[in-house]
Design a protein around this nucleic acid. Sequence first.
DNA 1: CCTTATTCTGTACGACGTACGGAGTTAGCC
DNA 2: GGCTAACTCCGTACGTCGTACAGAATAAGG
Lengths: 254, 254
Amino acid sequence: MTTEYSAGGDPTRSLELLWGVRERPKRGPRPKLTAPRIAEAAIEVADAEGLAALSMRRVAERLGVSPMSLYTYVPGKAELLDLMLDTVQGEAPLLDELPGGWRARAERWARESLASYQRHPWVLQVATSRPPMGPNELTWSESALRALAETGLPDREMVAVVSSLDNYVKGAARAAVDAALAERRTGMSDEQHYRAREPLLARLITPDRFPTMNRLHYAGVFDAPVDDFEFGLQRLLDGIEHFIARHRDDTGGG
Amino acid sequence: MTTEYSAGGDPTRSLELLWGVRERPKRGPRPKLTAPRIAEAAIEVADAEGLAALSMRRVAERLGVSPMSLYTYVPGKAELLDLMLDTVQGEAPLLDELPGGWRARAERWARESLASYQRHPWVLQVATSRPPMGPNELTWSESALRALAETGLPDREMVAVVSSLDNYVKGAARAAVDAALAERRTGMSDEQHYRAREPLLARLITPDRFPTMNRLHYAGVFDAPVDDFEFGLQRLLDGIEHFIARHRDDTGGG
DNA sequence: CCTTATTCTGTACGACGTACGGAGTTAGCC
DNA sequence: GGCTAACTCCGTACGTCGTACAGAATAAGG
């Protein structure tokens, strides 16, 4: 049970690592590993066993190598996490390579991002501090901004649109993903979990203090909820669409 | 540097703790502490020194007590985190006690939530797994749903509206808060941070591979960005407003 | 072959959460 | 008052973690 942080060490060292600019050294024994190979193994560990189980020792074990040898390729765990993050970032589709207009592209990206977060739930637990600015992250940003050019928005607003979409997706994905995480961690399904709490909760959530919650509970609203991720996504996109249309009107149609 | 999880232990024990239903024991020495007092101290530690510095030993030290004595009041660190979360949750204003219509209330709540997350940045780092369902959390939900009754939306959609707002605020707040966290953790301002990376980045972010990023960078867009939190909030609220209006029309005006 | 740059490893340190067992403290009962 | 049961508090100890450090093994350049 441990809070992981992304890197805060030597700035150029981390960036070199992310972008893979170090040339292969001439002398010395042939390296068994590479930083990307270590990141790959670490991602496998985190995917399979969770962020709490991700340790340098565990990664080394998976690679058949002593724990300390990892430090030859990676300055520390924080930098390794940055590398893992940027690697996963590479799974998100580039907006301007998707078919359709800006909205169709954004929708598709949002859903595939959710899927990626579901494959790698630990990503949303890592405190990104500052964006590590790896190649995949920047490539995605470049692509997103290019895809939004068609909206005719000014630069600043374009950036804000990208941010708000990203923020929403991260927030909503986290809610969706945390439930799945809990299931694996506790070995208890959602149903088992709530059933275990039901008796006590029923005495705590009294109809006089919590009338609405009670009504909704007995109406079964919490049993078969709307797909919250999709609902909020559509509302946000509606709002952005409206903003674009208004901007177009203000600047004399187009 | 450690991932913290909220509780997954004995369900009724955690709930009892959150709702404070345990009666004061008759025999034995007078207790020096209470669970809420411990949570308060833990919040102070986490606020001042970050989640990574939050340890049972550290909390005990602040309370002038041995580490192990905390376990008399709290089953473990996970349950303590749940208690901390629900305590902070109590800072968010209740929607139906705010002035104005649903939109004004939601706006106000969103901004005060952001402020609360800024005071307690660690909150967004804790993997909530499943909602701990403490009194403050449920009271807030109750209030939010009551405040949305005026929209005339069906129950399920009302819940979805609340979720999407909460998701957006969490996601956007996290982006806003992580920067501040990084500043304290690394002892480096954002400006220092980017300046240290500038030389290498300038060689990596070439105009041919990243034309848009380059253009925006030199146009100073990243130096003075729009308030992303507020921008996305307004777009989401616009979208929700539109959804409400359309629903009203569909069901024969109101 | 010797030097030098690298890779890899074993050991060790100080942190962590917390299991366990025991010492000290109070209230109720005889 | 004395006994016992319930309870609070604490010291010690175990297994985990990230990683500093020092050294051994390995390859290329001179």
